[in-house]
Structures are given as structure tokens and as C-alpha cells.
Design a protein around this nucleic acid. Structure first.
Length: 211
DNA sequence: TAGAAGATAGGA
DNA sequence: CCTATCTTCTAG
């Protein structure tokens, strides 16, 4: 097997922990069937008790089982009962780190993406945010556990320079894990498709802090 | 067994 | 600012 083949390069990269993969994944093209996005924003989640913000922090459950598979697996979950969000799992089996695909620029299949995202006023909003990205790419819970490079899913790493990468606190993550103590959100500078930062939701007025 | 909180988005 | 919407996890 040719070790310089593109497919192997992706495999080698995704064998690393999400913290290392995150910045290097920006500018990649993630394709799901006829629609493709160029990733402009990702967030790293680290498992194994090292990241209080991760779904895998408290160990394996039926929902997060895909995160414990090997790098290149997709972890899809339902967010707020409505949105389907996608992660690319990183690291060896059992490591449970992943990258939430938070935003991208639609670079192919724009018409299809528009039809799926009728409320988007501009094309830069088609995949601006993890729920929107999942919608534009027609990701479903049935895609949980799929593998990159199989079926409708593929990933192509950027060919050249992607510009400046910015690291900062993650979006909507509660507690310490959402502060710049964990600067694990990576964005491409100056991209209109990058979502706005927002603190964790807190409906019941305050309290309930268990960290 | 119940109940709150959640890696969000859209509309008033 | 408020609400839709529903699964998962944790406490009791």
C-alpha cells in the first residue's frame, strides 16, 4: 500500500488526539453525498476524564459509544432535541476524543444545501453552526457510527496554506470547560461562515452548578 | 421513576 | 428575550 496515498494521510492524522488534529483539519473539504463543505470551525473534545465538557467525560454510554471507536468514525448526536450534530472521532479505539464540526463554507451542491436550509439568508449561513451544518449535509442519527471514506462520507485535507487559525474557548459549553482554560475551538480567521461565540445556556436563573 | 440540563436555532 | 423539542443521565 502506498504510504503517501491521500487516504492514508487522513488515516494517520485521525489517529492523533483531537487537540492536535483540530487546527490541521481546518480548510479540509468534508463531503456527504452531493454536498461538500470546507471546514472553517471545529471544536475538540477530549475524553478519558480530561475534558469535563465532553460527552465521553463520564465514560461510555449508549449515546456516545461511537466516540470510543477508532479515528475516522463519525459520532452523530441529537442536540436540544432538534439538531443533528456531527463529530469526527480522533485517536485510537477507546481514546474517545473527537472534533465537533461547527461550521463550514458550502463548496459544492449549493442549490441542494439551500433547499435544505430555506431560512438561510446568505450562503455563508448555510452551514454556520453545528446544527445548520448537519442540516445542510442531511446528516441523520442513522449516520452515527459511519466511517469516513465509506458510503456518502469523505474527507480531503487542504492542499496548501489555509491562512490564520484562531484558538479560543468553546461555544455553549458550561462551567470551567467553556472557558479559555480549554481553548479548544479552532476557526479560520476572517471567514463569514464561522459562528458567533455564545456562553452556555442557563435557563433556570442561575444555580445548578455541579462542577 | 422523574426531572433537569443540554456541544442549538429561529423568531418576536 | 423566549421557546421548540426530546434524549440522556443522575439523583432519589
Amino acid at each position: 500500500m502506498d504510504p503517501t496515498a491521500p487516504g492514508d494521510e487522513v488515516t494517520r492524522l485521525l489517529a492523533l488526539p483531537a487537540l492536535e488534529v483540530g487546527p490541521r483539519l481546518l480548510g479540509s473539504v468534508f463531503r456527504v453525498g452531493e454536498v461538500a463543505v470546507r471546514l472553517t470551525e471545529v471544536e475538540a473534545y477530549h475524553g478519558q476524564g480530561q475534558d469535563p465538557g465532553s460527552h465521553a467525560h463520564r465514560g461510555q454510554t449508549p449515546r456516545n459509544a461511537s466516540m470510543f471507536r477508532e479515528g475516522g468514525t463519525l459520532y452523530v448526536y441529537l442536540s436540544y432535541g432538534i439538531h443533528r450534530c456531527v463529530n469526527i472521532v480522533c485517536g485510537p479505539e477507546g481514546y474517545a476524543s473527537g472534533l465537533l464540526l461547527r461550521a463550514g463554507e458550502v463548496v459544492d451542491g449549493v442549490e441542494v444545501a439551500r433547499s435544505r436550509r430555506a431560512t438561510a439568508k446568505r450562503d455563508s449561513e448555510l452551514a454556520k453552526g453545528p446544527g445548520r451544518l448537519g442540516s445542510a449535509l442531511d446528516i441523520g442519527l442513522g449516520d452515527d457510527g459511519s466511517r469516513l471514506g465509506q458510503g456518502r462520507f469523505s474527507l480531503e485535507l487542504p492542499g496548501g496554506d489555509v491562512g490564520d487559525v484562531v484558538a479560543g474557548p468553546r461555544v455553549g459549553v458550561s462551567g470551567r470547560a467553556g472557558t479559555d482554560e480549554f481553548p479548544w475551538r479552532f476557526t479560520l480567521a476572517g471567514e463569514p461562515s464561522v459562528s458567533s461565540w455564545r456562553p452556555a445556556v442557563r435557563r433556570r436563573g442561575g444555580a445548578a452548578e455541579r462542577w
